[in-house]
């Protein structure tokens, strides 16, 4: 049984392998982009708004409000990054009910890639908000003795972020696979429904944690001393 979709090679050309992870990622991307384009191409600014536009507006404003609730000063600045994280992970997970589909988030490569993106985005947003000096100074707060611990914390939380998402999604897929072999009729359906729920929750947790990291790193000095957020979301 293949645990990771990385091992499922669909096409190979001169040593470059197109595995299922990348292929299904493109499917998800195409779905998101084409769906957005189809709706936003006919945007209405009047009183009469289509249902699809309302749905998109609700999604976008909800994400924006969530970002604002975490405490960011300018939610629109973080909206593309955080929103894309949520939408991509949620869509990738929800498509799991389609037969033959393997969520790309079930690959550690994908989750690692997303975690690396967060790892890079945190200092970028922090530097954009406070400048390089302000960002670097946060590593020696409250004392220079804390520098190694801050570095370890930075790396470990990135790994935790990646492994958490990978583990949850992969486990769901694995459990469904095992249950199909044990009780092929009833339990897989229940697990699929549960998988939809956990897929959404994972997307939310990943996006919110990313925002918390970015937010805590981007805040001003007196708020940077706040206690770190609870990471036991799963």
């Amino acid at each position: 049984m293949e645990i990771s979709p990385d091992a499922w090679v669909l096409y190979e050309w001169r040593g470059l392998r197109l595995n299922a992870t990348i292929a299904f990622t493109w499917v998800v991307m195409a779905l998101l982009v084409l769906g957005s384009w189809a709706i936003t191409a006919r945007l209405s600014e009047g009183e009469r708004v289509s249902r699809w536009q309302v749905a998109l507006e609700v999604i976008v404003t909800t994400i924006r409000d969530q970002i604002a609730e975490v405490g960011a000063d300018r939610p629109r600045r973080y909206l593309p990054f955080i929103g894309t994280l949520f939408l991509f992970i949620a869509t990738a997970n929800l498509l799991g009910i389609v037969p033959g589909y393997r969520p790309p988030t079930g690959s550690l490569s994908t989750t690692a890639a997303l975690a690396i993106c967060v790892l890079i985005a945190v200092p970028l947003f922090s530097i954009g908000a406070r400048g390089i000096a302000g960002y670097l100074r946060s590593y020696v707060q409250p004392t220079p003795l804390m520098l190694p611990f801050n570095l370890i914390g930075e790396i470990s939380r990135t790994i935790a972020l990646a492994v958490r998402l990978y583990g949850n999604v992969m486990s769901g897929t694995v459990i469904v696979g095992i249950l199909i072999s044990v009780a092929p009729f009833f339990f897989p359906v229940v697990m699929q429904v549960l998988g939809l729920l956990t897929g959404l929750i994972q997307a939310y947790i990943f996006a919110i944690l990313a925002m918390v990291y970015i937010g805590s790193a981007s805040r001003s000095r007196h708020r940077a001393d706040d206690p770190p957020p609870n990471e036991t979301g799963d």
Binding site: D6, I22, T25, T40, T110
Partner: peptide
């Protein structure tokens, strides 16, 4: 290799969604 590809995919998706979703809607 997949990680690198996924990073690129994600950044491309960020740009595309910013272009087709967030900016028009907001």
């Amino acid at each position: 290799l997949t990680v690198a590809a996924q990073i690129v995919n994600f950044l491309v998706l960020v740009w595309l969604l910013q272009r087709f979703l967030y900016r028009p809607i907001t």
